[in-house]
C-alpha cells in the first residue's frame, strides 16, 4: 500500500510545486499574554497557509513562539489573547464557540505533543483512549473499538488487537508516541499539528515515527504542521518550511530551496551552526548571543544584535516582507522592501 502511494509520485517524490488548495489560512495572527507587570507579545503578526495534504514545518528555538502558535490554532491556551484571523476550511476558528471548537479538535484537527505520557491517561486502556473521540461523537462502542484497532494497525503497532486492553506504562516511548498519534488520527482529521513529536525519542525511533507520519499523510492526504527546532528532521519531511525567530516568521520557502539557498541571515546561520553527521568541518560558524525572551525583544529587526550583516537601519525599522528571486518570503532589510 505504502509502495503504491510512492510510486504514483515517482520514486523520489518531487517537492510540491503547485500551491495546493488552502486548508488553513492564518492571517496576521498575534498572540499576547498579560503578565502581572505588562502585556507581552509572544507572536507578532504572523501569516501563513497550509494546503490540503501539504506538509509544512515551523522551525524555531525556545521563545520563538512556535509552540504558542500551534496551541493558538487549536485554541488550547486560554491564558493568551489572540487577534487576527485563522480560517480553517471556510470557518473562522477564532470566532467559534468553545463547544464548536472542541468538535473541530476531535474531528477536523488533531494534535500531538513532545511528551506522549502527558497526553495519556495512565488509568485508561489504550483502546479506550484511542476510541474516546469517536465515542464522544456517538459512535457505538464496538465500531469505535474496531476503528481504534485499524488506526493502531495503520501505525504498525504490533499485535494491536491484544494490546488494546493494556495500559500506557506497558509501552515503550516510541510505542506511546504511536498511541498518541492514533488518538489524533482516529477521527480522520484534515490537519495534524505535531509539536516536537520526536524530540524525546532516540534517533532510530524518531526515524520510524517520521516515516509512519510521512506514509499516512500521503495516503490520507493529511496536512501536517510539524513544529520543531531540528533542521535535520525538517529536511526529509516537509514540503515547505517556515523559520520563526522571536515571534515572527522571518523566512518561508519550499524546503528544497530553503536549504539550498537560505536567504535570511538567521536561516543561514542556523544551517551553518549545526554539525552534520555526514561531513567533517574544522569549525562551526556560530551565531553570537542567545535568542531574546519575548518580554525583552530588540527593536527593529529582532535578529539585528546577533546578525553579522546588520546595517544601521536594522536596529530601528522592522523589515517588511520581500519575495526574493528564489521564491522565499523573507523579512530582512538585505532584500529591499521596507
Amino acid at each position: 500500500m505504502g509502495v503504491d502511494t510512492i510510486l504514483t509520485d515517482g520514486i523520489i517524490p518531487a517537492p510540491v510545486r503547485r500551491r495546493p488548495e488552502a486548508l488553513l489560512q492564518v492571517e496576521q495572527l498575534s498572540i499576547d499574554i498579560a503578565t502581572r507587570d505588562a502585556n507581552v507579545r509572544l507572536v507578532d503578526n504572523v501569516s501563513f497557509g497550509i494546503g490540503r495534504g501539504e506538509r509544512v514545518a515551523l522551525v524555531g528555538e525556545s521563545g520563538s513562539g512556535k509552540s504558542v502558535t500551534a496551541q493558538a490554532l487549536m485554541r488550547l491556551n486560554s491564558r493568551v489573547k489572540l487577534s487576527g484571523r485563522v480560517n480553517f476550511d471556510g470557518k473562522d476558528l477564532l470566532s467559534l464557540s468553545p463547544s464548536q471548537m472542541a468538535a473541530m479538535r476531535g474531528q477536523r484537527m488533531g494534535m500531538v505533543f513532545q511528551d506522549p505520557m502527558s497526553s495519556l491517561d495512565p488509568l485508561m486502556t489504550i483502546g479506550d483512549q484511542v476510541a474516546e473521540t469517536l465515542r464522544i461523537r456517538g459512535i457505538s462502542k464496538r465500531n469505535a473499538r474496531q476503528r481504534a484497532l485499524d488506526v493502531l494497525d495503520e501505525l504498525k503497532v504490533e499485535r494491536a488487537a491484544e494490546r488494546l486492553d493494556s495500559f500506557p506504562h506497558e509501552f515503550s516511548g516510541g510505542m506511546r508516541q504511536r498511541v498518541v498519534l492514533a488518538m489524533a488520527l482516529v477521527g480522520e482529521p484534515d490537519l495534524l499539528i505535531a509539536d516536537e513529536p520526536t524530540t524525546a525519542l532516540d534517533v532510530r525511533v524518531q526515524e520510524r515515527v517520521l516515516d509512519l507520519l510521512d506514509e499516512i499523510s500521503r495516503r490520507r492526504s493529511l496536512a501536517v504542521l510539524l513544529i520543531t527546532h531540528d533542521m535535520g528532521i525538517v529536511a526529509g519531511f516537509a514540503d515547505r518550511v517556515m523559520v520563526m525567530y522571536s515571534g515572527r516568521i522571518v523566512e518561508e520557502n519550499e524546503a528544497t530551496l530553503l536549504f539550498a539557498e537560505p536567504q535570511h541571515p538567521y536561516t543561514r546561520g542556523l544551517l551553518e551552526a549545526v554539525p552534520r553527521a555526514d561531513v567533517t568541518v574544522d569549525r562551526l560558524r556560530s551565531i553570537p548571543g542567545a535568542p531574546p525572551v519575548p518580554a525583552a525583544r530588540p527593536s527593529g529587526c529582532t535578529f539585528h544584535p546577533r546578525c553579522d550583516r546588520a546595517m544601521a537601519i536594522c536596529s530601528s525599522v522592522e523589515p517588511g516582507e520581500a519575495i526574493t528571486p528564489s521564491g522565499a518570503r523573507v523579512r530582512c532589510h538585505l532584500y529591499g522592501a521596507g
Binding site: D37, E61, S62, G63, T199, A200, H229, V293, A295
Partner: peptide, 13 residues
Amino acid sequence: MTLVLPTASPRRK
C-alpha cells in the same frame, strides 16, 4: 528542546 527552560529574567519584582 528536550527541556523546558526557564528564561533568564531580571530579578523578580
